[in-house]
Design a protein around this nucleic acid. Structure first.
Length: 263
DNA sequence: AAAGGTCTCAACCGCGTGACC
DNA sequence: TGGTCACGCGGTTGAGACCTT
């Protein structure tokens, strides 16, 4: 009997779910045989872990998750499964895809290598503080979200830009119409960093940078999240204590631009 | 409306590791 | 000790959705 490849059908999914519900997971090769699936054990395992498992969290990666991914990747590099262990319900595949499609894309747009110090600095000093700022903003009641989003900065629409866009924006300072010069986020990219989405994801202002709901219920991740929390609060403290956050972002942006010009 | 380009993400592949015989 | 098997990980691919012209 020839093995099947390619996308799974609803019937195959149903068979796999039922079989695992009755017999549990593991021993994937024999599971595939016994369940009557014309798939390799490997394929069954992947389908189950990345898609069918009931605790798989689907949908947009939240701001907190983005921040955590950036932080953990800076520590561990491409250790996707290790990183995934600290994001409940997210799979290594999903995180890997996020990194490749979003983060590496931004590196490409900034014309620097994703492993270069320049790009790592951009992440640490532009992107991550920017995410923290947005997470903080999202903590404000949803009816004042729009006010926060429109808070004036050095650039009138600075709060609508991704960090990499700030760099690009500055890149185009000589452009007679800067407001239209920088690249915009591709609209088919999930609006992960959109402020309004934060409000949507955490209705009633329940969002918390310290302990989002799904971290509170997952005790196995407590240690990790405490690490993150410590990092996070330090960062927030640093940025909040040292003056206007927009001013800081702007200054760093200029530094990054100088670095880029030196290269 | 259609053609071509770009992006996303599910799935595959190859390899390393550990358990067992 | 070497062979085999199962499993898990990270890298890569390709179909289809989406966007642009």
């Amino acid at each position: 009997m020839a093995l099947r490849k390619g996308p799974w059908t609803v019937e195959e999914d149903f068979t796999l779910i039922n079989y695992i519900a009755l017999n549990g997971e593991g021993r994937w090769n024999s599971l595939a045989r016994c369940a009557g699936l014309r798939r390799t054990g490997k394929s069954c395992r992947l389908r189950w872990l990345n898609y069918l498992r009931p605790d798989v969290r689907r949908g947009n990666i939240t701001l907190e998750e983005q921040l955590l991914i950036l932080e953990l990747h800076s520590r561990w590099g491409n250790r996707w499964s290790k990183i995934a262990q600290h994001l409940p319900g997210r799979t290594d595949n999903e995180i890997k895809n996020y990194w490749r499609t979003r983060v590496q894309k931004h590196a490409k747009q900034l014309k620097c290598d994703v492993n270069s110090k320049q790009f790592k600095d951009t992440l640490r000093y532009l992107w991550m503080p920017r995410l923290i700022e947005r997470i903080q903003a999202a903590k404000i009641p949803s009816n004042s979200c729009s006010e926060v989003a429109q808070q004036p900065g050095p650039n009138t629409n600075i709060n609508e830009l991704e960090p990499f866009q700030l760099a690009n924006n500055n890149n185009n300072n000589n452009n007679s119409n800067p407001s239209t010069s920088f690249e915009t986020e591709n609209s088919n990219v999930a609006p992960l960093s959109d402020l309004s989405d934060c409000c949507y994801d955490y209705p009633g202002n329940q969002i918390s940078i310290i302990k989002p709901d799904y971290y509170q219920v997952n005790h196995s991740n407590q240690l990790c999240y405490e690490d993150f929390q410590a990092m996070d609060q330090q960062n927030i403290q640093l940025w909040m204590e040292s003056g206007d956050i927009f001013e800081n972002l702007w200054n760093i942006n200029e530094d990054m631009w100088s670095l880029e010009k030196q290269d």
